[in-house]
Amino acid sequence: MDTHLPSPHPSPGGRGRSPVGTLARRAATLFVVHGILIAGAVFILLPFVWMLITSIKSPAEIFAVDFSLWPKHFNAVENYGFALQKVPLLRFAANGVIVCAGILLIQLLVAIPCAYALAKLRFPGRTALFALVLMGLCIPIQVPALPLYMGLAQVGLLNTYFAIMMPFFSSVFAIFLFRQFFRSYPDEIIHAARLDGMSEFEIVWLIVVPSAWPAIAAFSVFSIVAHWNDLYWPLIVISDTHLATPPLGMMFFADAETGSNYGALTAAATVLTAPLVVAFLIARRRFIEGITMTGIK
């Protein structure tokens, strides 16, 4: 014990510091921390800022050799006007809304009862179905895409909204997520509802679903973000410009219409990116929760 006599005084090897030293140290730490964070933030924000600025610049300034950050002449009306006239940007956005809403609606209608059955009901084939769901979690859309494409081509359904939405109607992910959520729902309430004479159908939609709101909201955010931004599948089944979803529309636009009209191109990018980004800025918590809760992208 003697060897460890307390010595609160700054010992030779100790690191006693004066208050000023501590302050300086803290300031230095803050400086380094924010330095790194800001450098990263600049990297992250660069394309957003450049997109917004270019979308209001005139072609002359865009092509000027000595580049400037802030435009001298505002060309916003022309750029956005050109983008909106030349390509049906609003149509792309509307397609995005239709596709996302349709997919989400059917996903919820299909997945919620199934998840409830897997979580709370005993029926033949339950284990097999759940195994199927788990397996489905590992299969990305690119795998069944080829046969699905052939099937749709066979029945002449390419270039329809149905074709864009069809592969996503049954979301294994939604089933899995809701099952986990429903499992923690108290059995007593379900038993009580049965004793009160409610049918299983009513129990699902009137009793269980209202309490599953956080999971539904999280999944909705995940589903909308995924399908608004999806390119692979729409690219395969849609060639008609009027049915293009936002990313596909953007691709068409970048290919054909503008060539190197960067002002209009960035204006279009702004219009198509804005809805989700604005929604994200409004419902920040829900978005982060939704996308991360789901984990798998």
Binding site: L109, V110, A111, P113, C114, Y116, A117, L118, L121, R122, F123, P124, G125, R126, L129, L132, V133, G136, I139, V143, P144, L146, P147, L148, G151, M166, P167, F169, S170, V172, I175, E200, F201, V204
Partner: peptide, 25 residues
Amino acid sequence: IEKLAGCGFAFPAFLLLLLTNLVPL
């Protein structure tokens, strides 16, 4: 009732899984 409800609830999802995952695979 549980069996019937369970099968009924799971059927649409199962059918769609069959059509969009199993058969294509």
